[in-house]
Amino acid sequence: MNSPPDPRQLVRAPRPRLYEQLVEQILVYIEEAQLGPGDLLPAERILAEQLGVSRATLAQALVALEVLGIIDVQHGTGAVLVYRPSLATVIRKLREHQSRLPEIAEARSTLEVKLAALAAERRTPEDLAAIDAALDAMAAEIDGGDRGTRGDELFHQSVTAAAHSPVLGQLMAFIAEMVLETRIESLGQPGRPEQSLRSHRVIAEAIRAQDAAAAAAAMQSHIDLVSDVALLK
């Protein structure tokens, strides 16, 4: 008769994080309510009450689902179901995404800090106009109650264009989809859209002043800011 295994050899299973538990509850609700692609989830206030959590905590779980493309959060409409996945698939993708986040931040630091410095050295009046237009677009989105996702994307695209470095531009295009994941996630943090916009303005002013060192430092500070997301905590 075999002796029982030594319990000291057992590895403690990781405790599911709160947002993972909420994601599971939301998926159970979707299944039980028989929601399909295009259907709306209940309003955040109602869903938070039903789940017994704060709206801020619920928002974290919704952002996780949005990053994975399972829902599309539309300003003025709410969370719309894109497709109905299995719970196991969602949890696996969440953990893969979580482990990938530091690498995405590392890639952004490597590329975008250099791009900001080059933009300060090479920007043209047309480049500055495009950067200003992106800042205005993001400000308008935030003022309208949105997160400023499109304006944020335009800003980083305009800085990349102002660097006039085709190879670095191609590398940024290559990681664009991964950057989009972090953009959605970062701008979903409470107060982050306004913080991000202020950070963009500091970068823009350094580029306008043709101060490459300041532009690089401002971009690194910005990436440090936007890389501080709830899924890493």
Rank of each mutant, 00 (worst) to 15 (best):
S54G: 14
Q60A: 09
A130Q: 10
Q195W: 04
R84V: 07
R92K: 12
P37L: 01
M1P: 13
T110V: 09
D143L: 01
I104A: 10
Y29I: 03
I207L: 08
A204L: 10
R201P: 06
L187W: 06
P166A: 11
R8E: 11
R55G: 00
I91V: 12
P125D: 11
P4Q: 00
A107L: 15
S165G: 04
Q60M: 07
V226G: 04
D143K: 05
A206M: 05
A88I: 15
R198S: 09
V11R: 15
L94M: 12
A206D: 04
R55M: 11
I223E: 01
E103T: 12
Q21S: 08
L10P: 02
P125W: 06
A79D: 06
T89I: 13
T149Q: 10
L27H: 08
T57G: 01
L225C: 03
T110D: 13
L154S: 04
L128P: 05
E121D: 13
L111R: 06
S86K: 15
A163R: 15
Q50S: 12
D39S: 08
A48E: 02
D39K: 04
L115C: 02
R122Q: 15
E31M: 08
P16K: 08
S3Y: 15
Q25T: 04
A140G: 12
L115Q: 02
L101W: 04
A214W: 00
V167Q: 10
R84C: 02
P4T: 00
Q195S: 06
L68V: 00
P37H: 00
A214C: 01
I207C: 00
A105P: 01
T77F: 15
I223W: 05
V67M: 02
A137G: 08
L180N: 05
A162Y: 05
S196F: 11
A218W: 03
A213M: 00
Y19C: 00
L58A: 06
I175D: 09
V73S: 13
G144Y: 01
T182C: 03
T89D: 13
L18C: 01
E194G: 03
